[in-house]
Amino acid sequence: MTEQGNENFPRRAFLARAAKAGACVSGACAAAYLLYDSKGPVPASKKQQLVTLPDFSVPAEPGRSMCIATGPDRKQTFNKAIDSLGGIERFVKTGDTVLIKPNVAFATPPMLGATANPQLVAQVARLCYSRGNAKRVIVTDNSINDPASCFQLSGIGTAARQAGAEILLPKPTLFAHTTLSGGELIRNWPILYGPFEKVDKVIGITPVKDHHRSGASMTMKNWYGLLGGRRNIFHQNINTIIAELAMMVRPTFVVLDGTQVMMTNGPTGGSVSDLRRTNTIIVSTDQVAADSFGATLLDLTPSDLPYLRKAQAGGAGTTDYKSLKPVIAEVAG
């Protein structure tokens, strides 16, 4: 804009300009008043929007909380196990949204057994739809290796999608902070919370694996894949974190796949010679009990795994799996 000087500078123009200048002055003053901060920065606030995972368990039925099924074929063995606990209909109701949390930690092919078996994941998803009449099945994990590669190479991505499930990769926006009431480690820590929103049922699926630090990686350790942030610092106190994870996640049921057990070089494996065939699948509403039995597949006893005792003390389940009177089933090969 250009203005031209004039000997008879009109009063009107002067007033208009004065009014604009006044508006700018009051604007500057108002901004200073509104933004005025008398205290300066303070240490980061501890108060944060915290989330809590709801309880996804279903009412207990005596004698129908755990099944140990043996058989060479995962699909048939799982079917047998879930049926002997009342069928998937007992757990998944019409219109439910089900979240499956398989172990998809590593970008390795399914034959190495470092990740949940894709056919087993697909079978669970399929049953949720076909007999549980689920509305939606979500599969998610915060993998250790690159998540997209893990879902692809483990075969879980393709198998789950074919079964109609939806894969949710751990995008940064899906994480929210949580604090476990009574926990000492899970305090204001980010977890993969987004997939749990609007979810009615949660199923954990994981293979039995050797784990050098904690002794064994099974259904409780599987929830490690929900932690975000630099979660590896928890390895300093591995037993407590696994116990707290079991206290944090109350699943509908867990599937512990001991069809093939990783006996050595866990939890990554890397060779078929690390695996031993034990032809067992445990389906349980009590993850502590499932893992207590699972320990025996690794030639361990529950007392070898301190996190089991801690989880029991924290109320996550019982290490005395026999007290649940598990159903023993067998599928001929």
């Binding site: 590593f106 390795t108 250790i144 784990h211 050098h212 630090r213 590896n232 390895h235 300093q236 106190n237 591995i238 050595t264 070089n265 866990g266 939890p267 990554t268 494996g269 890397g270 060779s271 010679s273 690390d274």
Partner: peptide
């Protein structure tokens, strides 16, 4: 003197 071995656990080779 703190337990850890995250590195060992994540080594993808067999044997590690």
């Amino acid at each position: 003197d703190k337990p850890c071995i995250v590195c060992q656990e994540n080594c993808p080779l067999s044997p590690k």
